[in-house]
Computed example of a mutant assay.
Amino acid sequence: ERYRPAHCPHCGSGHPWHHGHYERKADRSPRGPENPVWIPRFYCRRCRHTCSRLPSCVAPRRWYGWAIQQCVLLYLWLSFSLSFTSLRFGPSRDTCRRWLRWL
């Protein structure tokens, strides 16, 4: 219930109802297995759209957790190479570069 949005993000109508869930792999660390997390979905009767609410442990639009992203960005900010950082933490060089550009 605490993930239920108060209003539909599409039309603003109140209290969308629970409409199942989907699994998302939240932990993609190179040292452990991927841990699926259930993401609740909600349906608005008025506009007939669905929306999802991510738990705080899942980074939006990211496959890697916040801690790995933080370490990668710190190493890149301290002028370590993309190759070294990629080998140390697991994300590819392209992913590390994209995160650095985002920062």
Rank of each mutant, 00 (worst) to 15 (best):
H15D: 12
E23M: 07
S13F: 13
W38I: 03
Q69A: 15
K25R: 09
G12N: 13
R2T: 12
R101P: 00
S52Y: 06
S86A: 09
S92F: 07
L103E: 00
R31Q: 15
R98I: 05
C57G: 10
W77Y: 11
S79Y: 12
V58L: 08
C51R: 03
R31W: 15
L100E: 09
A26K: 07
G14R: 05
R28G: 10
P33R: 15
L76P: 05
P9W: 02
G14M: 03
H21P: 01
C96Y: 02
S13R: 11
T95M: 08
R97C: 07
P9N: 02
A26S: 12
P91G: 04
Y64V: 14
S83L: 02
Q70W: 12
R46V: 15
R101C: 06
G14N: 00
W63V: 00
Y3C: 04
H15V: 01
E34Q: 13
L54A: 03
H10T: 10
R62S: 15
G65Q: 11
W66V: 06
R98P: 04
T95A: 09
A67I: 05
Q69F: 08
K25L: 15
Q69P: 05
V37A: 01
C8F: 09
K25M: 13
P91E: 01
S29E: 11
R88C: 07
L74H: 12
S81E: 02
G65R: 14
W99C: 01
G32V: 13
W66I: 09
S52D: 05
T85N: 06
A59T: 11
C57K: 08
L82P: 02
D27P: 00
N35D: 13
R2N: 09
H15F: 09
Q70V: 13
Y22R: 13
D94C: 12
I39C: 09
C96T: 01
P33G: 12
A26G: 07
E34L: 01
C8E: 08
H19S: 10
E23C: 02
E34C: 13
L54M: 07
N35P: 00
P60E: 00
G32R: 15
H49S: 09
S79I: 03
L103R: 08
C96D: 05
A6Y: 01
G65C: 03
Y43S: 10
L76D: 05
H49W: 10
